[in-house]
């Protein structure tokens, strides 16, 4: 009987963690972010606007679930996901030789965050973890209000392992963030748009020099 009581307490102790919220430390590692296609665009300066958070669920980035798939607690991000995405975009732009300017720059990179979610599905002997982030990037000419470029990016990462806790969840979401960053980094449309900004800036500078000279 004594052993049975110990087993009950041990079981409760083990499952207790399933009922407490978990906070994940998320971010794109600049050291593992390589130069990509957008490094081939002429160096552009743009204003990186705050990310517009359009997620359906802004309170959490996932749920802890028990063996039956029932929600038991929240999975949260230490830094709000819109800030995580904005910081990641800054890393991508700066790694590729582009500069971040002030709010009065002619061009602004506006981002809408539609999804930032972690989930997992428990199988018989393994667990599959999934991360998914969706962001729409638009380059807006602030002098006219027109979007000169817009593209939807979906970062996705999944892994099947024997199991995993907070450390694994962080890794999955950071890999998802890295996938999103890689897609931005390798986008021909974004590269062309950055090239367009740089050449327009050169024209603007030439006109300004001409006006001040005359």
């Amino acid at each position: 009987m004594k052993r049975f009581v110990i087993l009950i307490f041990a079981a409760l102790g083990l499952s207790a963690c399933a009922f407490g919220d978990a906070e994940l430390a998320l971010g794109l590692n600049p050291e593992t972010t390589n130069k990509g296609l957008i490094s081939e665009a002429s160096s552009a300066t743009l204003y990186l606007a705050d990310v517009d958070d359009q997620r359906t669920d802004k309170e959490r980035i996932g749920y802890k679930r028990n063996g039956y798939g029932m929600k038991t607690a929240d999975i949260l991000a230490e830094t709000p996901p819109p800030e995580v995405v904005k910081e990641s975009l800054a890393v991508v732009l700066e790694t590729n030789g582009h500069s971040l300017g002030a709010a009065d720059e002619r061009y602004a990179l506006q981002t809408t965050l539609n999804n930032f979610w972690f989930d997992y599905k428990t199988g018989f002997v393994s667990v599959e973890f999934y991360g998914s982030i969706q962001a729409v990037l638009s380059l807006v000419d602030q002098s006219t209000g027109d979007a000169v470029y817009s593209e939807t990016f979906d970062g996705y990462h999944s892994e099947k392992t024997g199991g995993g806790l907070k450390g694994t969840w962080e890794r999955i979401m950071n890999e998802t963030l890295a996938d999103l960053a890689k897609k931005v980094n390798l986008s021909p449309g974004f590269k062309d748009a950055l090239d367009g900004i740089a050449s327009n800036a050169a024209v603007d500078d030439a006109v300004a020099a001409d006006v001040s000279g005359s």
Partner: peptide
């Protein structure tokens, strides 16, 4: 069926 599209491709 899934909590989000994150699970979708795996499903």
């Amino acid at each position: 069926e899934t909590a989000t599209a994150a699970v979708f491709f795996g499903v």
